[in-house]
Amino acid sequence: MSDLNLRELHNTEFPIPDELQSNLAITSLSKVYNWSRRSSMWPLLFGLACCAIEMIGTAASRFDFSRFGMEVMRGSPRQSDLMIVSGTVTKKMIVPIVRLYNQMPEPKYVLAMGACASGGGPFKEGYNVVSGVDKYLPVDVYVPGCPPTPQALIHGLIALQKKIDGQSLANMDDVPWYGVGPSEPTPIPILGPDVIDPRQMDIIRRQAELAALGKPYGVRELPAPQMKAVVAAKGAAPAAAAADGGEVDAAKAERLRKREEALARKHAAKGE
């Protein structure tokens, strides 16, 4: 950021005389914090897979994300604020990734770049693939695409800046790192027969008990699809649905009635 524009920081509640506009700003602490943080995000120099190539492309001269204060890619997690998870997260790799995340100082952010990091992507079925880094780390911004174009990544980074702009020092749910005391590190996954998330020990124990009893384990029965109910609601007259009672149903019926009215109006307009 070459020119420091103090006007960006003004809090309009306190008027500042015109002649001092470029010398003086009265603002809140949060705003100063956020402004300085969002203007110098230092991403971790950390490429996982194909998406990393586009990340490097974004850093290179054509797209150049240093225009947004992000050019200082750091090799060490200790010096970085932002982890761009650029590529497929495998079970073998999630262990170092969680370690790296724990080593980053707070405040820290995670951006899931591409389909793989967001939800497993094309390789989701794979036995060694973690379907989305958000299974382990809190993700702030998801960038869709396979791979996302540099424009998309920059858009994601700008979205992250907007998110930071909206954070407040006063609200601790918003930014946990301004709370009292150190925050808990994310537990490191264990590579056993398959990857084990220590936070899931209870579920795993329960399933193991089922297995010991010779019952089916590891799967969950899903309720049958709700298709019929929806069709019935559509087919039934609004009045009949309302007669069923229940607030939800009433609201639904009301919506349906409004929609049908609108449709009728539309048809009428067309007919003319």
Binding site: G120, K124, G126, Y127, V129, V130, S131, K135, G192, P193, D194, V195, I196, D197, Q200, M201, I203, I204, R205, Q207, A208, A211, A212, Y217, G218, V219, R220, L222, A224, P225, Q226, M227
Partner: peptide, 27 residues
């Protein structure tokens, strides 16, 4: 997609993750 509805595979897996443990997992 039974009957035209999408089932997410995570929902069918008891752990909600892409994992599977042998029956004799030694806890």
């Amino acid at each position: 997609w039974p009957a035209g509805h999408v089932h997410r595979i995570e929902e069918k897996n008891a752990y909600g993750h892409n994992v599977m443990y042998p029956a004799d997992l030694d806890l």
